[in-house]
Amino acid sequence: MRRLKERLIETVLFLAAASSVFVTLGIVGILVTESIPFFEHVSIKDFLTDTEWTPLFENAHYGILPLLSGTFLTTMIALLVAIPLGTVAAAFLSEYVRPGIKEILKPILELLAAVPTVVYGYFALLFVTPLLQKVIPSLGGFNVLSAGIVMGVMIIPYVSSLSEDAMRSVPSHLREASFAVGASRIQTAFRVVIPAAFSGITSAYILGISRALGETMVVAIAAGMQPNLTLNPLEPSATITAFIVQVSLGDLPHGSIGYQSIYVAGLSLLCLTLCFNIIGLWLRKKFQEKE
């Protein structure tokens, strides 16, 4: 009796754990099945090479490139902010700051990741953009630059927290050995600790990239929701995510081409993040083997 109960409980718990796999299967399955009808209307060649994305217009074009350029641009700006600042902050916290103060500083820094993204959207649109307009008077009300910068600040804690964890887990005898041969703190940080923690730091970067690629509200609010094939950060643009939000705000009948187009956009986004996750896993494996 008792054994039966034990087995039953184990089965129930296993099903709970397995449910997470069903979530992934559900996401991939739904995105693929809802996207297939789209490609009966639009050839893959048009999808990948057309330079306009206007699925809701009379004269519809279905080229993903403008959305990709918007996504790429916002992500690049965000990473240019988050990776240097996050890495330096992590090295500073790990190598210079006393543990007592670090215990206070790190949670405060992590609050940056807790702020709702729609609040960041408000901040980008009504605080950062007017601030930037003082420096660049030609800047429009909606632009990629301020959205990207705010996104960058938002993902600093993802980069810094995980990097700091990785740096802290570097055994202290490596540091001591480095100090013993006369290296300064900065030399120890850059030539010993960071290389030793590289696989952890890489996963921090990859997580930051995934966040930036999938971030929605900041760009939807501050970047203007106009698909625009450009690499100029001063112009308005739309990302894949902003397009999905824009379409979802309207009333779209199930099965229409507009409805299918958000699934195609979602599938492209998923593939993009998956690529980065796989690169991250591969890099981590490679560096772990080296050690």
């Binding site: 996401i27 995934s210 690629l213 999938g214 986004l269 998923l270 993040t273």
Partner: peptide, 9 residues
Amino acid sequence: GIPSITYGL
């Protein structure tokens, strides 16, 4: 690491 908007889709 999956973007939250794909959960919505």
